[in-house]
């Protein structure tokens, strides 16, 4: 397909750009576009679930996190220029060139070796999955069948990873444990237009998120993607109103309770007499809903941690400039 080739070339170009550009913000934007191209590309390769996940999580949320995290720390243009002209930099450029040659050689050898030796010996797992997933699990979407039933043991750790990642982020960014920050995060009132219109958007986003979650076993999508969409409501709310009327403590508790619920619910799979065909579908929907809520809570916490951190940095900067 020529279209896919165009996409692939664009991906390579964007990857090079995001590495070579000197300003971190611009590199991050390139990375976001790269992810978006990836997401569209997965559609051509018949992977709608993945495409949705990459678009929501990889392209949108990751870019937002990057931008918020590096906001206070990037170099000014003059700094970059002055560093660029120093003799040290020239040495570094020479090093880049040297490594570039090394990577080209080894990469060429590895890739040509790969295309020379690669072979297929059949797909036993594929054969099993596509024949029996409907009767086994009651799902109409094989991907959901795998991650909520066949390989649910992995999914539990995936949920745990999100939990731990958020715990780590909140811990490192020094979110005051168990409390809301006392002062209001923003002082400036924000644009009236943004506030009003984003108010209009909530129902759309909520509807879409719930649709993705509840229909996860029928159509592309599921708890993770839908949860991320729901989390974007929180993010939009921040941009619209700039006030943290959110109790992070409760969100964290909720997230942990949802996680426990997911573990408990997945344990039901171990009781075969319980899992008749009606209950199977119900179980899938319930799992998707729990995962969706958990992911929603988690990603919202993640985002607010970074936002809070950012305002704190600006605060201290302002204080040191004044003092």
């Amino acid at each position: 397909m020529p279209v896919t080739i165009v996409f692939l070339l664009a991906m390579v170009v964007l990857a090079v750009a995001s590495i070579q550009v000197r300003k971190a913000e611009i590199a991050v934007i390139y990375l976001g576009i790269f992810s978006l191209f990836n997401a569209i590309f997965y559609l051509f390769y018949s992977a709608p679930d993945l495409s949705l996940a990459e678009a929501v999580i990889g392209s949108a949320l990751a870019t937002a996190l990057f931008l918020v995290a590096i906001k206070g720390y990037t170099l000014r243009r003059t700094q970059i220029k002055s560093e660029y002209r120093s003799p040290k930099m020239r040495l570094a450029l020479f090093g880049e060139l040297f490594w570039g040659v090394v990577f080209l050689t080894i990469g060429f050898i590895v890739i040509s070796f790969y295309f020379g030796t690669v072979q297929d010996v059949g797909k036993p797992a594929w054969y099993h999955y596509v024949r029996s997933f409907i009767s086994d699990t009651g799902a109409r979407n094989a991907v959901t069948a795998i991650y909520l039933n066949y390989r649910v043991f992995d999914t539990l750790f995936e949920a745990l990873l999100l939990l731990v990642g958020i715990l780590a982020t909140a811990y490192f960014l020094e979110w005051p444990e168990g409390k809301e920050p006392e002062e209001e995060i923003a002082t400036k009132p924000d644009s009236e237009i943004v506030a009003r219109i984003s108010g209009l958007l909530y129902p759309f986003i909520l509807l879409y998120g719930f649709y993705i979650i509840v229909n996860g076993h029928l159509t592309p999508g599921g708890g993770f993607q839908g949860g991320a969409i729901l989390a974007s409501v929180f993010i939009i709310r921040y941009f619209a109103q700039r006030r943290l009327g959110i109790n992070i403590f409760i969100l964290q508790r909720l997230e942990k309770s949802f996680f426990l619920g997911i573990i408990a619910l997945s344990m039901l799979l171990l009781l075969p007499e319980f899992m008749n065909s009606d209950f199977k579908v119900f179980h899938l929907v319930l799992m998707n809903i729990l995962i969706g809520f958990k992911v929603c809570c988690g990603l919202a916490i993640l985002f607010f941690c970074f936002i809070f951190q950012q305002t704190k940095v600006e605060d201290t900067k302002g204080r040191s400039e004044r003092g």
Partner: peptide, 30 residues
């Protein structure tokens, strides 16, 4: 990813069984 693409399974023991089917073991080097 490379293993799964060639052998089609993820289980340790099954991977080993599938490896025996490969016509050229150099495929496993990468």
């Amino acid at each position: 990813a490379l293993l799964y693409r060639m052998l089609g399974v993820l289980d340790f023991a099954l991977t080993r069984e599938q490896m025996a089917l490969l016509s050229d073991r150099r495929a496993l080097i990468l």
